[in-house]
Design a protein around this nucleic acid. Sequence first.
DNA 1: AAATAAATTTAGACAAATCTAAAAATAATT
DNA 2: AATTATTTTTAGATTTGTCTAAATTTATTT
Lengths: 219, 219
Amino acid sequence: MKLSESEENYIKSIYNLQIKTEKVNTNSLAVFLNTSPASITDMLKKLKSKKLLEYKKYYGFRLNEAGNTEALKIIRRHRLWEFFLVAKLGMEWDKVHDIAEELEHVSSPELINRLDAYLGKPKTDPHGDPIPDERGKVVLLKQKPLKDLAMKQNAIVSSVSSQGHEIMEMLNHYGIGIGSQIKVLKSFEFDGSLQIKIARKPECIISGMAAQNIYVYDN
Amino acid sequence: MKLSESEENYIKSIYNLQIKTEKVNTNSLAVFLNTSPASITDMLKKLKSKKLLEYKKYYGFRLNEAGNTEALKIIRRHRLWEFFLVAKLGMEWDKVHDIAEELEHVSSPELINRLDAYLGKPKTDPHGDPIPDERGKVVLLKQKPLKDLAMKQNAIVSSVSSQGHEIMEMLNHYGIGIGSQIKVLKSFEFDGSLQIKIARKPECIISGMAAQNIYVYDN
DNA sequence: AAATAAATTTAGACAAATCTAAAAATAATT
DNA sequence: AATTATTTTTAGATTTGTCTAAATTTATTT
Ligand SMILES: [Mn+2]
Ligand SMILES: [Mn+2]
Ligand SMILES: [Mn+2]
Ligand SMILES: [Mn+2]
């Protein structure tokens, strides 16, 4: 299936939102893609006509099997390029998303499979997100938002929400990265902020917003 | 200057044709880009309005200084990616052009300069064409078509016309590559074909067409 | 159950990039 | 110099992706 850059961006966004929120709606997709709701409706019709999406007017929409497959191909390309930019070109993890957003649309399978092999078939991208394999299989980590981590439980930072570089900029400042050992010392009900301890770093406090967008797995 | 993918393809094509033929005309550009002459005229107007092109109706057109600068940026990206695909991913030199044709439109300067450094600031792409440096400077080789090489003169293959993979496919078959030592043994006036000797290969005969698209420098 | 609010879709417009067919300008032949 | 041929441009359509404003449907309040 040959898809335009726009179609690919929509498909990938729907996929990514479906993971986090189960039910995606027109308005939230419009906000996410920074377009108007009317444009979303237009594209939904097109993706339906290409049989990548189940869609009933006013009722809702959802990628079907074919749509999912396409989404995973795009995500594979995106994450492999992000890995390349960090591992080979030495770019910062908070700068690679926008470039990968363009590179992901170059769709030669030979290119991507060679890139994958060249990079040593990495399992996750620089933000901790899993890279689908050639057949579209993706291993989901048993992770949870830091805000749901039990008090004083040791855990490892596994990923961060990767839309936008702002969170990574901040984590760089705190010295938090993928793989950091982390523990919650205190939770403030007032605003959901957390006092935390990163291995070999001084204690610090992060906002509830941050605690929702940092993911960890138990250790 | 932010340019669309189409604008970039037109600019690059005009630049490449201007090198070979001095005067480019609407029809030949249309053939080269596989579009209609009407589309060429439309784009000429747009590029003129963006001040990248000198253009007078019916009279002719030519990239100006700004247009040249843009062309060299695109060509730099194209050739660096081609080098990457061959040197790092191990692709064949006759397969990389089409992929680079897409990658060249990803225009982050940081990406390209890091890629350049990572590849060791290569001077030429896999087809022997020079890679412009960051400031757009390009070192032209003193090369000539193989058909103009004096009889029995030792020479080195320096580049091949790189539009389309067909010539490279054929050269692979003959065992000719960039850097091959080559000598013309005999020239047939009838059809311009040449009997040649490649170092450590058996003698063979190539067509006049081929002899026009293989470039060499004296040795 | 009405009324109001929110979400979604339609109607109609626009810019970009392309096309075909016709017109206009230039070049080449007789 | 006229005629014919070639090249180039214009006129008018089409497709894709987008928008705003209005209409429609669904959800929420009173
Ligand atoms: Mn993208
Ligand atoms: Mn990522
Ligand atoms: Mn291109
Ligand atoms: Mn090349």
